[in-house]
């Protein structure tokens, strides 16, 4: 466990400090092995391969869950459940699908299950609704109070606009912007057709554009 902790620390941030590009870049920065090679090694019993996969994917997976669900406790639960399912099923993983797509598919299914259980959903803009999503702000606002306030306000508007999107549109948007998946990969994760995904993304972008001004 000590070795595992050393390998995983410090925590990879999914925010500004994380690799901006998607998984291929993270892969290059992390070594020669691809996700799929590591997943196969893990399926063969190589625990170190799991640790590398976990270190690569935990940040973006967590960001996807937190931004999808809007609550840290819910994101924590889904994060743990996603890895639990991956751990339970990893021996059956086959390289037909990308590991990242497979992992996000598990996470997406859990998010959908959670939303179905919790309906009716409440927008974070509702007065009686839950507080805005708890997030960790890595950077401190600048010394100008007005600018800091404006930055916070913009962040709040962005979160509210994303939270107001229907789940399908929000998922497509986050998978596109955050995980930088292609339309085909988003279709694979969500189980929707490519054209449906394209349509959801267009609606989501339109609504965000309108909300953000």
């Amino acid at each position: 466990m000590i070795a595992a902790t050393a390998l995983l620390m410090p925590h990879a941030s999914a925010g500004a400090g994380a690799g901006r590009r998607c998984y291929p870049s993270a892969m290059a920065a992390d070594g020669d092995s691809s996700d799929e090679q590591l997943a196969l090694a893990w399926a063969g019993g190589d625990q170190a391969a799991f640790l590398r996969l976990y270190a690569r994917h935990k940040g973006r997976l967590y960001a996807f869950l937190l931004r999808s669900l809007g609550r840290r406790d819910a994101a924590d639960d889904c994060f743990q459940d996603t890895w639990a399912r991956a751990i339970a099923a990893h021996r059956r993983w086959r390289p037909q699908a990308r590991f990242s797509t497979w992992l996000l598919q598990i996470a997406h299914n859990l998010v959908v299950d959670r939303f179905r259980r919790q309906r009716p959903m409440v927008s974070i803009d509702d007065g009686d609704g839950p507080a805005p999503p708890p997030v960790l702000v890595d950077g401190q606002p600048g010394s100008d109070p007005a600018a800091a306030h404006e930055a916070l306000e913009q962040g709040r508007r962005l979160r509210a606009a994303i939270a107001a999107l229907p789940l399908e549109q929000r998922t497509a948007l986050l998978l596109r912007l955050d995980a930088e998946l292609s339309l085909e990969e988003i279709a694979e994760v969500t189980g929707a057709g490519r054209e449906t995904v394209k349509s959801r993304l267009r609606y989501a972008m339109d609504k965000l554009r309108e909300a953000m001004g």
Binding site: A16, A63, F79, G155
Partner: peptide, 17 residues
């Protein structure tokens, strides 16, 4: 930039591991 998210907590890491 406007919705930065830190990774999972250390406790969550340990639970998964």
């Amino acid at each position: 930039r406007q919705w930065p998210v830190s990774g999972p907590s250390e406790a969550l890491d340990q639970a998964v591991l």
